[in-house]
């Protein structure tokens, strides 16, 4: 056997081979699973009970911020549904319905959805309704209702940057990661999957899809739409933070997602969000700046960049970061040349 070090050409070939495998997304599905295994090992080593499977009753703060989690998930579900389906489509029989839905979702047409999040608290359940507007893959605006009229909170993405417009105070802007960090700072839970891209990533890798044929769905406007029905079941049963099932009903004719349901399997003793339903409402005419932060406040407001502002400057923040060496405010998460 030849044990000589490989030649430079061989080295260059290996280097390009590895990059090509990433550039064309070969076997990327396993990356999320690998990371999941690493995190499980770390949790085991730390000897801490994982919050991911905690059965503890939620505190008020936790319940409050569970809403944020659900909203982030809801927005992600819809905006990212194409990711979910695209990644598995080559090997799934649900391909035809899904590809059509992906194409429809990519159209630069504004669509409005009603997002209903159902929470379970003890033996009771209650619902919160949010309005979600999407346009293509990378524009969305989500209105989260407030108890006080006129104090709604908006968050969204304009194609490049994400933003949050709180009821009062400065507007926050940043990228996907920054938004997810901000969201995660709004609650005390240890939920890495708050990271929006992480949610998408895990969803895109971890669901077994199958098509259930055609069914007719009634829309919010009272129309009956013949839909193709696809259901995704979570492969990793242990990861209870992700929905156990995701179902998609897409218009058979246009491919537009008419209804998406994500359900979590909560134990009898568990509280938290148990269902998110996203229903197509209509295709509204919207102002040009609807997917910009500026479209959702009047008058003058300051702007803070997520990445550089201390998170506790947020008027909604309830949990300043701890003093860990892994404090995100100062951590260099991006490699630079």
């Amino acid at each position: 056997m030849n044990n000589d070090p490989p030649s430079l050409d061989r080295l260059r070939e290996s280097y390009i081979d590895a990059l090509l495998s990433v550039a064309y997304d070969e076997d990327q599905g396993s990356v999320a699973e690998r990371i999941e295994r690493v995190m499980q090992r770390i949790e085991q080593e730390k000897g801490v009970a994982s919050d991911r499977s905690s059965n503890a009753a939620p505190t008020t703060t936790r319940k409050t911020w569970n809403r944020w989690i659900s909203i982030a998930i809801a927005a992600s579900l819809l905006v990212g549904m194409s990711f979910v389906l695209q990644s598995v489509s080559p090997i799934q029989p649900a391909l035809a319905a899904i590809e059509k839905s992906i194409a429809a979702a990519a159209e630069q047409i504004a669509r409005k959805y009603l997002v209903t999040v159902t929470y379970k608290s003890g033996e009771q359940s209650y619902e919160i309704e949010n309005d979600l507007y999407v346009k293509g893959h990378d524009r969305f605006a989500l209105r989260h209702p407030a108890v006080v009229p006129g104090a709604d909170l908006w968050l969204g993405k304009n194609g490049d940057a994400t933003w949050v417009v709180p009821a009062i105070g400065p507007v926050l802007t940043g990228n996907d990661l920054a938004l997810s960090r901000w969201l995660s700072a709004q609650e005390q839970l240890s939920t890495p999957y708050l990271h929006v891209t992480t949610v998408l990533d895990r969803m895109s890798r971890g669901y077994q899809l199958r098509e259930l044929g055609e069914s007719t769905i009634g829309t919010r406007e009272g129309k009956d739409v013949v839909c193709r029905h696809v259901v995704g079941e979570r492969k990793n049963l242990a990861n209870t933070n992700l929905p156990a099932t995701i179902e998609l009903w897409s218009d058979k004719a246009s491919g537009v997602a008419i209804r998406i349901e994500a359900c979590w399997s909560l134990a009898a003793s568990e509280s938290g969000r148990e269902k998110v339903v996203i229903e197509f409402v209509d295709q509204p005419e919207l102002p040009d700046n609807w997917f910009e932060a500026e479209g959702h406040y009047s008058g003058s407001r300051g702007t803070i960049t997520f990445d550089t502002s201390p998170l506790n400057t947020s008027p909604l923040n309830s949990s300043p970061l701890n003093s860990s060496p892994l404090n995100t405010d100062t951590f260099n998460t991006k490699d630079k040349p």
Binding site: E43, R181, S184, S190, P192, T198, F331
Partner: peptide, 14 residues
């Protein structure tokens, strides 16, 4: 945010 959460974000990025 807990250190392991930040760590997970970092390793996901890399």
């Amino acid at each position: 945010m807990k250190p392991e959460q930040v760590f997970e974000i970092l390793i996901r990025e890399n």
